[in-house]
């Protein structure tokens, strides 16, 4: 059986689900951030796969993926800066203890 679009999408979904699980269930803020990076990469795979199989001549999926990488870089920078900031102020990077917005 040759590899088709479905394989890539399902791979993307699996990676996304792993990232989602990590983002939701981990207490360490850095691990959460890493999980989010996995999710973004999973999305990129889907983008490129669609581009490759549906509109191979246009390459728009690639362009989207590039922009996602740009945004992911910015997100990682700011996210890690926030984690460092929290660490400095509260001496913790445990996400379940960061609940200033609680009722």
């Amino acid at each position: 059986m040759s590899i088709g679009l479905e394989h890539y999408i399902i791979l993307s979904a699996v990676l996304f689900a792993i990232g989602l699980y990590g983002a939701l269930s981990k207490r360490n803020a850095i691990v959460i951030l890493m999980s989010i990076e996995i999710m973004l990469n999973a999305v990129n795979i889907a983008m490129v796969a669609f581009s490759r199989y549906i509109v191979p001549a246009l390459l728009t999926g690639h362009i989207f993926a590039i922009f996602i990488i740009v945004v992911a870089a910015a997100e990682a920078t700011v996210g890690l800066a926030i984690i460092i900031g929290i660490y400095r102020n509260r001496e913790t990077i445990d996400a379940s203890q960061i609940n200033l917005m609680k009722w």
Partner: peptide
């Protein structure tokens, strides 16, 4: 880098 900076409060990667 971030992991290393926050080393002193690292307790592994526990789940909630």
């Amino acid at each position: 880098l971030a992991i290393m900076l926050t080393r002193d409060v690292q307790h592994g990667s526990p789940s909630n």
